[in-house]
Structure formats: structure tokens, C-alpha cells
Design a binder for these strands. Structure first.
Lengths: 335, 335
DNA sequence: TGAGACTGTGCAATCGTTTGTTCAAATTTA
DNA sequence: TAAATTTGAACAAACGATTGCACAGTCTCA
């Protein structure tokens, strides 16, 4: 029924040690005779023995497991990152345990603690909140951590993110080039670094343009509802901004809905640009111009950094910013 | 540095056994004195001891881990299921290891084998291919398995799916009610049960309507590309079908793109209805009418079945079909 | 022919928990 | 006061793998 080294050992009269060596491909190294190898392999295959990774991990102090901590596995942005990391890990012989911090720092601490007690070999996280302490402590004393997308200011933790500042700067410049001077920016979680950087990029582009301008920054969450409510308010302003910059896909959806509900049209009545790539943006009417982040590369680089840290047992701090690109739709009017 | 029961034991002079009992809240049951409990708890908190789940699992033969096997973690349909399962598992004190079968049966077998060697307590899978054997064997001998969305015909495995037949039947009836008689259905993976049932529902609705009709069934994959190519062919038919039924969100995206590229319009030139819920469908022009599946409930029920199987150590076969609902958009013309 | 080297394998400790059993001391009962 | 019971906690054996070390037998060489 449940096969172990010992059960096989008793059955074929070869010690567990020898079987272990053969199963792990160390037969040559330990000069085990071909006869023995054949006998063992025959039985191992016959009874479909699979070693207990639990026991192995306990002994070797290596679980071949990484922890992935995300704000929401259902968010398309994070689920793409997750898939790319899960696949990379699989290819390296690692499995991934995914936990959801639910945008809650207490849950997040609990998740980290679970990962530690599971002895993961490394952690990739898109943290919530702005307290790096638990992450830094774990990274320093226990397990390497790489942050992805979200990160902390002035921290020793490695991270991979996109160039949020530049992306927002370029998006805003694009609006300015199209004659927009009165622009509203609807932001997400105000604590998160990507959000801060995007807002800074937005403001800097307007300021540096030299043109006279009016900037509006509103909102406080990466959610459809936030996008909807803030847009409702923005559309009622007098004078009304000529363009809205939504700092995430979810916010954008709220923007679109509010514009539609107000009987207005994009881009005739108001221009729109968004952060985040999503395939459906090409299918909207009009297609939405957006700042596209290289999501898959972010995942791949994060796992690359993490595995390098695991395999060399180092803690070199790497802060990577990947370039964003503007994907043009038809949601911006030239005025 | 690395705290264990033994290290604490040596430091405070209380046996590992007693510490273990206290940490696990069994102090009362074993009548351990308040003094000892206090002393132990003080030290446990001071040095932030967390038990090794590896060692515990090895001893107790329970990992508090479930395996989640999906065709693609990035697919919004599956990522929603994943999130709902991950959260449920977390609430029950379980963690989830997610693996991606990449729609490949060899990879799928490898994933199952990994889960077994990791001694997961249960598995939730949306399998690819149509060979139930590995799943049935594992479910019978080793670890309970519940299938979600995808399942096998005539199998003893439990599954949770939506009422694909009825959903497709209703969608088709809806088209018929709107005067459509010549309808094309673009299917996904032809082996998968949900796809088969949807196609059957589609054909049955047309047949049972009693009207004279013309049915077209095309396609072979749940992908944007498949939707695009088949739509291109369909649009060139003479006479051209008046409606297209896309059997998934991804297929739908391909349909829309092909219609747009052909300079045609939904619903004036061709009506469209789709399977799968996705928030972006409400944001398209026109909003797309679709058969909405209760994704979150599917995840919740699957984990409910699995946990009941784990906790009672039973293998009762449950085959659940959840109702779908038609969410009306404006993508169907009345003719 | 005896010392050393090589071959092939087994022994036993270890990883960090949990848990059935044991046992001394304290307390109660007769 | 001796016997019986209760209290409180330690001992030691698992769980299933890995791995340093030991060792018996064979071979090589002087």
C-alpha cells in the first residue's frame, strides 16, 4: 500500500541506504553493482515507489518549495505573474504555494509565518501596506525574499517592478501632446509604491511641460468602484477635465462605466488612458490607450533573482525596473 | 537562530514532549501546571518559535495541504476558481500548492506524482485529456480528488461543474426566440466534457425548436486564435449564419476581433452570444450577452466536497451541476 | 604471503515533531 | 500509616528519508 524505503528493503533484502542512493541516481558514485541496481529499480517501478518529500526535506533541510504571496490571485495582473512564476518554479523542480494577503497586513503576517513554518526555500511577494519590517527580518535571518510589482522605499529587499514613474510620465506627456491641459488622475492604494511613483510621474510630466495646466489627483483604491465614483465626481467638475488617467485596469473599468452612465462618450467627451495591460482593452469601443507592463518578464525576473539567491545563498539587493510601453488605442482625442 | 523543541527544551529544562503539548493547546488535557505553561509560553514567544510543519506532517501523516491542478493559472476563469479555493483552504488552515498542467497529459501525470510525493491531503483538478485512470487510481488508493469544471464521463470521481448542457440550450433558445435559424457554434477543446455538453445543448435546442434550422459547429480550442480563424471562415459562408455562439470567453475575443477586422458590426451584421462570465463583457460595445457560470460557487463547492472527503475519510461520489444564468447584453439582434 | 587498496553494501545517527508509556511525588482514601 | 489514586512531566519510539562511517571480501603488488 504505502511504500517506503524500509518496506522495499525488507521485501528485496537490500538496505534502505542503498535503495536511497540508487533512487537518487548516486549508484555510480557509490559503486553499486549493476545487479543490485537492476533488482532495486525493478521493484521500485513495480510498486510505484515515490519518496516522501516530507522526510527528505526534514533530513536535507531543503523543501524545493517557494512561497508566493499576492494581494489577489483573481486579479488578472497578479494571476499572470503567478502563472509565470509557477511555471518557472516547476521547470526548476520547485513547487509553489500561493497565499492571498487580501490586502490586509495582519493576514499578510500570518501568511509569512505559515511559509516560514513550511520551510519554503524562498518567497516572492507583492506586499500590501508599507511596513517592510517582517519581510526584511525574514530575508535577513531565514529565507530570501524578492518583491514583485509592489515594494518598499529604502529597503534592502530585492524587487522587480515596472518603471511606474516613467510610464505615467509618458502617458501624461502623450495627453499633453494631444492638447490636454486639464487632466484628472485616479489613483489606487495610496500607500503602494507603484501608485506613488505613477502619481509623481503624472504630476512631473504636467509640471515639466511648461504649459499652463490643471492637475487633479483623486481616488484611493485599485477597484472598479473607486474608478466609478471618482469619475462621477470628475465629470461634474466645472470646468470639466478633458482627460482621465486611470492608474489601473480595475479603475479604468469604473471610469468607462461612469462615462457611459453619464451618457458621455470616449474620446469625444472625455479622453482616457490607463495603466496595465489587459487583452480586453483592445476589444472595447474605442480600444483603450494604455501603459502596458511586461507582466510575464516581471514574473520571470523575480523568480530568476530568487533562485539565484537560493542557489548561491546570497542576499545581494537587486532593484529592477522594467520598461513600460504605450499601446495606442483610440481613446484619446486630439484637441 | 533556528529554534526547535529540543533547543528550547535544553534552555528551559522542560522536555520537548511537554512543550509540544503546550504549544498545541493540549496543556489542559495533559494537566500541565500553570507554572510550566507560563514558563514555556514565555520562552516560545521570546524566541518566536514556530513548529516545523515538515516534522509534524511526517509524524502525523497529515500535511494540511491541498493540491490544485489547473490548465492555466492565468486564464481568468481558472484564476477565479483558484482564488476561491485558496481562500477557503486558508480559512481551514490548509495551504494550496498550485500546478499548471499546460493542457498536456504527460505534464499532468508528473504534476499528480509531485502532489503524491508531497503527501497532499486532497486534490482539486480541472484535468486535461480524457483519461480518468491516473485520477481514479489516486482517488481510490491514496488521496481524495474532486474535479472542477472539467470532468470525465462515467467516472467514480466527484466533480463540480456548471450545467453546460442547459446553459448552452438556453443560450441557443434565446437566439431562436430572436428569430435566428442559421447559427454557428465555435467550440473549444473537443475532448473536454464541458465542451461536449455545450455542443450537445446547442444542437438539441435547435432540433427541439421544431423550426427549420441550420447548425454549424466549428473550432477545436479554447483560444482567441481559434475564435478568430473560425469566425473568419464563418463570415465568408454563403449564406452567412446570422449568429455565433462562442463557447468560451477566449473564443469570444477572437470572434469580436474577426468581426471588427471584416468591417462588420455586432449585432447589426451578426449576433453574438458567449459562454463564461467576465467583467469586461459589460464594457464592450455592445455589451455581450453571455451564459454566466457561478465561478466562485464552483470553487467553494469543490473545496467543500474535498474537505468533507478529507475530514471523514470517505469517497462518496458527488456530481454537482450548478445553474448558469443568461446575462443579457446587447449583442443579439431580433430578426 | 602479507599489507594495502579497492568494491560493494550495511549500520546507525539524524532531521523535529508527536504520543503511548512510565514513573516519581503529592495527595487522598481506608 | 500504608495503600491507592492522582498529578505532572519525562522517556523513548516512531514518521521516512539521507549520509558519514564501518567493514567484509577481493584484488594488487612487493
Amino acid at each position: 500500500m504505502k511504500e517506503t524505503l524500509t518496506s522495499i528493503s525488507e521485501r528485496i533484502g537490500v538496505s534502505p541506504a542503498t535503495i536511497s542512493r540508487i533512487v537518487n541516481g548516486k549508484a555510480d558514485k557509490y559503486r553499486i553493482s549493476k545487479e543490485t541496481v537492476d533488482k532495486v529499480m525493478a521493484e521500485v517501478n513495480r510498486c510505484k515507489y515515490t519518496p516522501s518529500l516530507l522526510a527528505r526535506s526534514l533530513r536535507t533541510n531543503k523543501t524545493s518549495t517557494i512561497g508566493l504571496l499576492l494581494p489577489s490571485a483573481a486579479n488578472p495582473f497578479f494571476s499572470h505573474i503567478a502563472e509565470s512564476i509557477i511555471k518557472d518554479a516547476y521547470a526548476k523542480g520547485y513547487i509553489t504555494i500561493t497565499l492571498d494577503n487580501m490586502e490586509n497586513e495582519a493576514v499578510q503576517r500570518a501568511c509569512l509565518s505559515i511559509m516560514i513554518s513550511r520551510k519554503v526555500d524562498g518567497i516572492i511577494a507583492a506586499p500590501c501596506g508599507n511596513d517592510p519590517t517582517p519581510f526584511e527580518e525574514i530575508n535577513r535571518t531565514t529565507t530570501p525574499i524578492v518583491l514583485v510589482d509592489r515594494y518598499f522605499e529604502e529597503s534592502t529587499l530585492s524587487h522587480v517592478t515596472s518603471n511606474n514613474y516613467k510610464g505615467a510620465f509618458e502617458a501624461t506627456s502623450f495627453l499633453i501632446q494631444n492638447g490636454h491641459r486639464h487632466i484628472a488622475c485616479i489613483q489606487g492604494d495610496t500607500q503602494s509604491m507603484p501608485n506613488k511613483r505613477r502619481v509623481n510621474g503624472f504630476l512631473a510630466a504636467l509640471k515639466e511641460s511648461g504649459e499652463e495646466h490643471k492637475a487633479v489627483v483623486a481616488g484611493d483604491a485599485f477597484s472598479v468602484q473607486n474608478g466609478y465614483l471618482e469619475t462621477k465626481l470628475i465629470l461634474n467638475m466645472n470646468p470639466r477635465p478633458t482627460a482621465i488617467f486611470a492608474l489601473s485596469y480595475t479603475i479604468l473599468l469604473g471610469v468607462i462605466k461612469a462615462v457611459q452612465d453619464s451618457g458621455l462618450h470616449i474620446p469625444d467627451d472625455i479622453s482616457v488612458i490607463s495603466f496595465d495591460e489587459n487583452i480586453s482593452l483592445d476589444y472595447m469601443t474605442p480600444p483603450i490607450t494604455r501603459v502596458s507592463q511586461p507582466v510575464e518578464e516581471m514574473g520571470k525576473l523575480a523568480s530568476k533573482l530568487l533562485f539565484s539567491s537560493i542557489e548561491n545563498n546570497t542576499r545581494k539587493t537587486n532593484k529592477l525596473e522594467l520598461v513600460t510601453t504605450i499601446k495606442a488605442g483610440q481613446s484619446i482625442r486630439h484637441i
